[in-house]
């Protein structure tokens, strides 16, 4: 029987080596019934975008704690546009100052979650804001 299942790439761009948050989110997505492609640490924007395309994901969820979010996240979105993949939703979480969030949203990052957000909140956001592409 036909059934669309949401596919999500979870990864960490850049140099910081703390993947606990990314793993917790991956696990929460799994328990919510989503298919998670976990790509791990130290991803370049090129690797993230081409993996997202090959895996045909609906959402790219990036965890970033290094402080380089204002560079790396817009770079990912620019590449998505270049490869005509901007229909994939891009989301980020991590240590990101509130003051940076409007700029990130203007640069194509649909939502930004900061420390303390519950996994339920994030899963609920995915359920309501991301639908598997037809």
């Amino acid at each position: 029987m036909a059934e669309r299942r949401l596919r999500i790439l979870v990864g960490k761009p850049g140099l910081d080596g703390h993947d606990r948050g990314a793993k917790i989110i991956a696990r929460a997505f799994r328990d919510a019934g989503f298919e998670v492609i976990y790509t791990g640490l130290h991803q370049t924007p090129e690797q993230i975008v081409s993996a997202a395309i090959q895996e045909d994901v609906d959402l790219i969820a990036l965890s970033i704690l290094s402080g380089a979010h204002n560079t790396l996240l817009p770079a990912v979105y620019e590449l998505m546009k270049e490869k005509k993949a901007e229909d994939i939703v891009l989301m980020a979480g991590g240590v990101i100052p509130e003051t940076d969030i409007p700029g990130l949203k203007a640069a194509g990052i649909r939502e930004v979650f900061t420390p303390g957000t519950s996994t339920e909140t994030i899963v609920e956001w995915v359920r309501t804001k991301v639908t598997p592409r037809a």
């Binding site: 991956a26 696990r27 997505f29 799994r30 328990d31 919510a32 019934g33 989503f34 298919e35 998670v36 492609i37 976990y38 790509t39 791990g40 993996a51 895996e55």
Partner: peptide, 8 residues
Amino acid sequence: GAILGDRI
């Protein structure tokens, strides 16, 4: 759901 981690 699933965590597909072979790509790592």
